[in-house]
């Protein structure tokens, strides 16, 4: 089976599940590139950080586009697991993609209330 190059774009803080979805494709021998747009990062639980590391181990990469990659998600050597990519670089990279998946919902206009901000 041909290995496909898949970009999964996450624009909304509630849809970082796109990383898990990317990992699911990596396990199926595809190349997964989840991209967190404009700093809509998840909480970096052990589960989430392990998934991000696993995507990288499977020859994919989780990217941050439009925000500095967070210090909270690092490997055992302290190196950041999330790589930074500019919007223009992302566009150029996706010209070569087999599939582009804008995942879930777009970015919210309002800031989240305390009830769901964490």
């Amino acid at each position: 089976m041909e290995s496909l190059k898949v970009y999964i774009l996450v624009a909304n803080r509630m849809y970082n599940d796109g990383i898990r979805s990317g990992l699911g494709l990596a396990v199926e021998n595809h190349y997964a590139f989840p991209v967190i747009m404009n700093g809509e990062f998840p909480s970096f639980s052990t589960y989430m950080s392990e998934n991000i590391a696993w995507v990288k181990d499977m020859e994919g990469q989780v990217y941050s586009c439009g925000a500095v990659a967070p210090d909270a998600c690092v490997d055992e050597d302290g190196d950041k697991l999330i790589a930074e990519i500019s919007l223009e670089e992302l566009g150029e990279a996706m010209r070569d993609a087999d599939f582009i998946i804008p995942y879930g919902l777009s970015k919210q206009t309002n800031e989240p209330p305390p009830a769901c901000a964490e």
Binding site: L4, R20, S21, G24, E28, H30, D98, F99
Partner: peptide, 18 residues
């Protein structure tokens, strides 16, 4: 199912939309 079903979509379908 699991996310593997999504993999099957990519493999089996000539056209794809999200």
């Amino acid at each position: 199912r699991t996310q593997a079903f999504h993999g099957a979509l990519l493999d089996e379908c000539g056209k794809y939309i999200v």
